[in-house]
Amino acid sequence: MNRYLKLVHMEIHRFRYILAALLGLVAVVQWGALVWSARRMDAALDEVEKFGRYTMYINELSDRKISYAEAIYNAQQLYILSVLAVIGTLCAYLLFVWYRDWLGRSTFIYRLLMLPSARSSIYLSKLTAIVVFIIASLAFQALSLAIGGVIFEVLIRGDRQGESYFVDIVNATLVLQYLMPLRLGDFALNYGLGIVAVLVVFTGILIERSYRWTGIAYAVGYVLICAAAIVIPINVMGMYRTSSYLYTAEIVGIELAIILFVAAVSIWLGFRLLRRKISV
């Protein structure tokens, strides 16, 4: 356990500057976009008050108030870009978290594989580190929204501030709706599926590392089979058709069993490859 925690810490420590840079990027882009959007809307309101001229930001239907959610909505492209930058980097790091150990002159993987503890700790520590990066990024996104609310209140004078509901803020950008769904159940499902996808990719990487050139084909095949095993039954069982033979609870139960099976196979295979087959 101690060795596993040390490995987790090591993985987090290795990514700390990249993570800090990503979160910094989110803060700068999102708060900057908010300031730009809120000021533009505020200026548009000034024009309405002075000259009665309506713009695309403040139209005749408006109650001459601007809300935090609207300010985000009008700058959503920049919010989406900043979030995509984080998602893209984390996806790339899924591969790099393994391959960096093989890179360089003094191959680090030698040292990891020679540790006097179960090799499964290496697999689990990398998985845990990725999960920590994801939840920390999500928490920072939530914090960014909260701080954005304060920035908005500072920027826009009180009588112009319209009410913003939490639901509206989340719905203001397409990316937040998927990234941080409003229902906790959806969050658990989305990220549970995401973790299974990470397990499949990790095992794919280990297959490639174990069999090298032919391993690439095996790894791609493995990932495709796992994806098909999860996606095809959803269509076959008619999850998104009204007239399917199975009831929702039954389809969800079967699908959950398949997902758990894929996760279990990926972990088992990953551990087995690390223990017996991996080559340096």
Binding site: I12, A136, A139, A142, F166, L182
Partner: peptide, 27 residues
Amino acid sequence: YWLSIVLALFGVCGIAGYYVFGASDEL
């Protein structure tokens, strides 16, 4: 290990806070 501990705690508390606040601020 303070960095790992702080990061993990920040993540869990941040997401918990998001959903607690979300549940209390409905349409």
